[in-house]
Computed example of a mutant assay.
Amino acid sequence: MSEKKDSEVRMPHKRLTTTQRRRNLEAADWIFRNGEAGRSSADEAEFQQWLDRDPENIRAYEAARRLMGEARMAIESDPALRDLRIKPRSAAKPILGSLLALFAAGTLFLLFDGPMRLQADRISGTGEMPVVALEDGSSVQLNASSAIAHDFDATRRTVRLLRGQAFFEVARDPDRPFTVEAGDVRVTALGTAFDVRLGSNETDVTVTHNAVLVEFADHADDALRLQEGEQAGYDHTSRARTVGPADGMLALAWRRGQLVVDNAPLSYVVEEMSRHFSGRIVIAGSELARRRVSGTMTVSDTDAALAFLEHALGVQTTRLGPVIVIRD
């Protein structure tokens, strides 16, 4: 395994278990439910029962409330949101005002990636590709806009790729298998290094050193042993599996901020560009989204990537604030 880089980021000592993540999501749900108008005594009793069930529920609720507070602070600091007014024609004005504030805070909670923050142990932002040191000596590099959660104990090491892409260099420990779960795909390390990408349409696994065992939710008894220099793909819709050779340098070009594609659909390219863009990139039309493109582009530089697409496909790009529209 390569030496750890000076830029690596260490995980916090406290990590989330599956139970803690479920509790956090329940707490976020209670935040929204408690903000609704017309709550009954039965609702209040149910909430109190949930709090009394476990002291950790109280802590989770307070943490979720702090996150919501950050959203409300953002509203207060934004003149456009702060000065927004509703002028109802009835006595329902206070209720509508409260609903507006709740809706705005809830929307910002989602925009601030609140649900993912309650589940993940580590999230990378747009333009960030951090190297994370795990407690067992393994390392993970996250692509931009990616997220992982991990659970280690005396018998196993499990990392869940919740979003995006990650490259794993695994420390040897024969007594504790190292497994990565990405949607319906489960990858167990039989060697040292491999890459997992959880895309919107497909999950890809690329082995750069030794081998891995790849299992699929709907093919539990038909696991694949993937060797160094091979890549497996799993289509989320058709459940089809593909296996073929892979050039590790090209497959891991994302670690250099690049994307190398050979006859890939434009939708795939835009998905990778979007990891590095804080707004939204929209393709005008499904036919254009299916158009194929080949070449090497720097997706970490949005302007450069757009210039490449304009030249390669003859498309036009228009910026509308935080939105980029690609059209014929």
Results as ranks from 00 to 15, higher is better:
R239S: 12
A264P: 02
R23M: 12
H150Q: 06
R197Y: 09
P245S: 13
V140D: 00
K87V: 13
T302H: 02
T158S: 05
A220V: 14
R291W: 08
R163H: 06
P322F: 03
L320E: 06
Y61Q: 06
H150K: 10
S267V: 09
E8W: 15
E70R: 15
A193Q: 08
L84H: 08
A80G: 07
V293F: 05
G97L: 08
F216L: 06
L226W: 02
A305Y: 01
V212S: 05
F178G: 07
R241L: 13
T298H: 12
L100I: 05
V293C: 06
G137H: 02
V243Q: 01
K4A: 14
R15S: 13
R122Y: 08
E310Q: 11
Q49G: 14
S146H: 05
Q20M: 14
I31P: 04
R197P: 00
A28V: 05
L142G: 06
I75W: 14
R292C: 10
L111S: 07
L213W: 01
Y234D: 02
Q119D: 01
S200I: 11
F277P: 07
T192W: 00
W50K: 10
A104V: 12
G114C: 03
T298P: 14
G114D: 01
K4V: 15
L320F: 14
M249D: 13
L213A: 13
F308H: 04
E26C: 13
L96H: 05
G106Y: 01
K87G: 09
S286E: 13
A28M: 08
L198G: 03
D6F: 14
L320C: 10
R280M: 05
L306I: 10
T188I: 02
E272T: 11
V323F: 11
R15M: 13
D83Y: 12
T126F: 12
H219P: 02
T237N: 06
T208L: 07
E46T: 15
V260C: 13
R15V: 15
K93I: 07
A149N: 07
V270S: 04
T192F: 04
L309F: 08
R33W: 10
E8M: 15
L224T: 01
L320T: 03
W254M: 08
A60M: 08
T318P: 00
P115S: 09
A60D: 01
R239Q: 11
S286G: 14
D153F: 15
A28H: 06
Y234S: 05
D218Y: 02
E215M: 11
I95V: 14
H236L: 15
D328N: 13
R157P: 00
D303L: 08
A232C: 11
T107K: 12
R280H: 07
T203H: 03
A71F: 07
A284N: 10
S41R: 12
N143K: 05
D247N: 15
G314E: 02
V214Q: 01
E202A: 10
N201T: 15
W50T: 06
F32M: 15
R156L: 07
V214H: 03
A253D: 03
F194D: 02
A27Q: 05
S294C: 09
D204I: 15
S267N: 05
F47N: 09
T318Q: 15
F216V: 08
T296G: 03
V159E: 00
M68R: 08
D222L: 10
A217L: 10
G137D: 00
